[in-house]
Amino acid sequence: MLRFAGYIDALNRAVAMGLRWLVLAMVLIQFGIVIGRYVFGVNSIWVQESVLYLHATLFMLAAGFTLLVDKHVRVDIFYAKASPATRRRIDISGHLVLLLPAMAALAWWSWPSVRNSWKILEGPISVGGIEAVFLLKSLIPLFCLLVALQSLAILLRLLAGKDSA
């Protein structure tokens, strides 16, 4: 089971290492948009939307890695001062009762929208934009999958008595 958890960790690390290049692309494209608009007086909805697509991809697909490295948002009213055993119980409960059911619900309820978007190859958000909203919507189930898998890996480790990856 711990080997399986390690494979999940490796998957999310690989995804994150690939996605980090999107940050550079976003900065360069946004810089180009500003220069184009304010220096040359040109603008492109398609290019502006590309920043949105890159940003959405980065945050949706890197969420599993964020959970892996424990940099996610944690409401630690009790957690910060709790004993290690209590923290373990809080973590296990959080994954089983909150995180995994939330990912399942989000995947379940978003799937019809994603499926329909692919069925019609849903077009741009704005006139002149990127004609691939279906790809943008596909990030939702991928987000759910990567976060749920990482949650499972963490849960396996917690149940085996291991605290970190």
Rank of each mutant, 00 (worst) to 15 (best):
A105K: 02
T57I: 02
S164G: 07
L98N: 00
V23P: 01
L155Y: 12
H95A: 13
L19P: 02
Q48H: 15
F59E: 03
Y53N: 09
F4E: 13
D70G: 05
S110W: 04
W46M: 09
V15P: 10
P141G: 03
N12K: 09
F31W: 14
L11W: 11
Y7N: 09
M17K: 14
V97I: 05
W111A: 13
S151P: 04
P84E: 14
F40T: 08
D9N: 11
D76A: 01
G129M: 05
K119F: 13
D76F: 00
L135V: 09
Q30Y: 15
I125H: 13
V147P: 10
V51W: 01
S50G: 10
L96K: 13
L156G: 03
Q150H: 10
I125T: 12
L121A: 13
L24W: 04
G129P: 10
I90E: 07
G94P: 01
L52R: 14
F59L: 14
L28R: 03
L96N: 07
W46C: 04
V42R: 06
I90V: 12
V73G: 01
D91F: 11
D70A: 12
K71W: 03
K162V: 01
G41R: 11
S83C: 02
I45E: 02
V39S: 13
V133S: 15
V34H: 08
D9M: 03
P124A: 15
E131F: 09
F143S: 07
R87G: 07
A56M: 14
V69W: 08
L98M: 04
A10D: 03
K81N: 12
L11D: 11
A5G: 08
A56P: 05
I154R: 12
A16D: 10
S113W: 11
I29W: 01
R88M: 04
K137E: 00
S164C: 07
L98V: 11
A16Q: 14
V34P: 05
V39R: 08
R88W: 00
S110R: 04
A14Q: 11
D76L: 02
A82C: 01
L61E: 03
A5K: 08
G128R: 07
N12W: 14
H95G: 11
Y53I: 02
F134C: 02
W46S: 07
L61W: 03
V147S: 06
G123M: 11
S151L: 09
P101R: 06
L149K: 04
L145K: 00
G128S: 05
W118D: 11
I35M: 15
S113C: 04
L22Q: 00
S151N: 10
A160T: 00
R87I: 05
T66M: 07
Y38E: 15
L145T: 06
R13V: 13
L19M: 14
R20N: 11
W21P: 03
G94W: 05
R88C: 05
G123I: 10
S117Q: 04
G6N: 11
L96W: 10
R115K: 14
V133F: 15
R115Q: 12
L135Q: 06
S93E: 06
L146I: 03
I92E: 10
G41D: 11
S113R: 12
S83M: 01
R88E: 09
L96S: 10
K162Q: 02
I154C: 03
D91Q: 10
A153I: 09
G36P: 08
M60E: 08
D70P: 01
N116V: 09
S83D: 00
I35R: 12
A85F: 08
F40W: 07
K137Q: 06
